[in-house]
């Protein structure tokens, strides 16, 4: 038995698009504007399930 395959091209923003604006608090509670915080650098953004479980 296998799960039906997903087409990840249809999930989330795609290559060639600008990564959307994201403003969220970090682990110190400071509000981070992702594009401002990268200060013109390339960036890697990882989405993961949880740091707790």
């Amino acid at each position: 038995m296998t799960l039906p395959p997903r087409d990840f091209r249809k999930i989330g923003p795609n290559e060639g698009e600008r990564f959307p604006d994201v403003v969220l608090p970090d682990q110190r509670g400071r509000v981070v504007d992702l594009h401002a915080a990268r200060a013109g650098r390339k960036a890697i953004v990882v989405f993961y399930r949880s740091a707790e479980w």
Partner: peptide, 23 residues
């Protein structure tokens, strides 16, 4: 409300250059 686990890489302009998701 869990995301698909995955990674975006983008260049200096914020344009996505790589998108990697795993099943």
């Amino acid at each position: 409300n869990l995301p698909y686990p995955g990674v975006f890489v983008f260049d200096e302009t914020g344009t996505i250059t790589h998108k990697r998701f795993h099943e």
